[in-house]
Design a protein around this nucleic acid. Structure first.
Lengths: 200, 200, 200, 200
DNA sequence: TATGAATGAGTGTTCATTCAT
DNA sequence: GATGAATGAACACTCATTCAT
């Protein structure tokens, strides 16, 4: 506390987090040494371990941080009082843009973690994802109530909706980026399918 | 030492490939030492390098192998002469089942996104994905021709369709497996949305 | 901030020393971070460095502190005016009990054997051991003078005597604790051998 | 098997073991990086891990190796058909000389090991120590049978006997080596005390 | 005097890859 | 072609020590 006037652990923690976001978004988890993340944050390797229990913790914290931002997006869209359909379109667009920026990171959601942390960290992560899906499903419920949308289970629909965003992320990576052929899956088309389906 | 009559490099290659499929489907790429894959295939570590350039090559070969099987599924469904809509439903179901079996492997496709990938290997992979999308888009084109489906760009629709299958794979792992709440996204619901949309 | 009246550096030093004794007696030197010792003493890590030059210094100070206590035991026994033989038995028993309590710490004395030890620190340690041996040898000299004991060189006998106590410490840890077989080397047997030998 | 004509895993294992004996005898366990042991053995770090599970395993293997040599000494003395007393004196002398050479190593018997190995490795170690004590106690039993020695429990006496040897080792390190005063505890004196005691 | 954030050298261990046989 | 011993780069993590406050 006495260390630096105005020293704030949250600021340094965020600095490391930001560095981790940047580095982990450039390449695979296993190609991102803690040391590189630390250097990029302008701190020593050991400092990272003052703020994060281990690499796994840092990784999950990064993901939680990102999802928080997506939740913010959803909350903002919810405030807007357009009809649900319009809100969902805005949400799709905004999440898409966001995910597009952090594509690698969103793809890096790994399944493994060292046993002792696995549970605690992963629980936090799952909880965050749950929060996000909840936020989306509230919009959908409104749409159902207003007879805009079919009365499907809102959480399921929210989950599909959320997946649509990552469809785009995947496409971009697997195909778009490598130029086989620029498959044109615009937000508009995707949304149209989501709303009206492809059946004539 | 004396070559066995009928010895076939393809058989040994496939044996290694099968072993790799098994092992890589159990855990992350970075947790699967070549040695384990070799042992499981009943060959020595060095032997793997006679059939595959390196671990990355083996991994991509495994993925290509899998996608080949999905292409087979698509080709089989195509032969069936039901209407496109029915074919797509069958395809969704079958691919889903397939992906479900090789979930870990399909999730590892995301790993491929890393930039410094050897071009040659990756080209093959992209080509395979292209083949698969082509196969699916042929079904869709038929549906459009038969006025079953809206005249959207068939390749784009095929891509969305393909992504739907992996939605399920992801859901299962990230949410289902960890028991937050069994979100029920049945093939039926997903297909219904794909066909009719969620708008009332 | 304002100095507490009666504040005494010796008290804080001893607090740290006591904490170090406790922690270092629980596990190996290399498994005892300074931080843990500091926390346990209720001070900050940096404070330890105000009272001790470094970890090695702290360790040696702990050992010297312990040997001081053993010297106290010897001095106390000396005051008792039983015959030398009786005194030696009492001493064996009491030192044994003491060592038994601080077994881990006494085993860590061996670590000191490493050559590059700072001379100053080590000199103090050796001096302390010398003091202890001196105290014991005085008892032995008395025994020799009183014709209770054979006229062997008293310092040598004192050294052997001291070693007998650590025999027990080692036995307990290496064998007793791991339950091979409870080898029964009672203080009594050991003392009998020391006095009478094993020859019939 | 096909690797090098006459390739023998035991030879290389022993080479590493010999190097470890040398290095671990120079300084503390924690100051002996695997890398240094490997380099000294003329192999790469990784090679050590082909022959030993981990550092702990290597360390205990070294200790077992040494104790084996002490057992050999004991077995050899046993073959000699002098009376037990003479045999014990020879044994004391020879073990002393041996321990003197590997003083540091004998002092390095550590109490800790990583949990999973702890049991297996330590069991082996304890078994070895047990073997050694058994070998010594056979000599003692013979002495008891021949009425040379008092009928004390042979295993306990063997344990005390074994400890006598390390007394010498400790003396040398703690006092002799650092020249406070050369305390002269000759093998002869020690043996005399062991046989006849110090009581007049 | 006291603090505790920051440092970064140090090390055990893994594993893809090579190559002599 | 097949083997598997050998290699050594790479990396996560620890912890004694320093120093600005």
């Amino acid at each position: 506390m006495a260390k630096i006037k105005g020293w704030n652990p949250e600021i340094k923690r965020q600095k490391i987090l930001d560095s981790a976001i940047k580095i982990l978004n450039q390449k695979e988890y296993y190609k991102c040494p803690i040391d590189e993340i630390a250097k990029n944050a302008g701190v020593a390797k050991g400092t990272v371990y003052l703020y994060f229990k281990n690499k796994e913790d840092l990784h999950l914290s990064v993901l939680i941080n990102l999802i928080d931002k997506v939740i913010d997006i959803a909350e903002n869209v919810k405030k807007n009082d357009s009809p649900a359909k319009r809100q969902l379109f805005l949400l799709l667009q905004r999440i898409f843009n966001f995910i597009d920026t952090y594509r690698h990171l969103f793809l890096s959601i790994r399944q493994e973690a060292k046993p002792p942390l696995k549970e605690k960290l992963h629980n936090q992560f799952r909880k965050k994802i749950g929060e996000l899906i909840k936020a989306i499903s509230i919009i959908i419920e409104k749409g159902i109530k207003d007879k805009e949308l079919k009365p499907y289970p809102s959480v399921a629909i929210a989950t599909v909706f959320l997946s649509l965003t990552s469809i785009i992320a995947h496409q971009k990576v697997e195909i778009g980026k490598h130029k086989i052929q620029q498959i044109d899956i615009s937000t508009e088309l995707l949304f149209k399918i989501f709303m009206e389906g492809i059946r004539r």
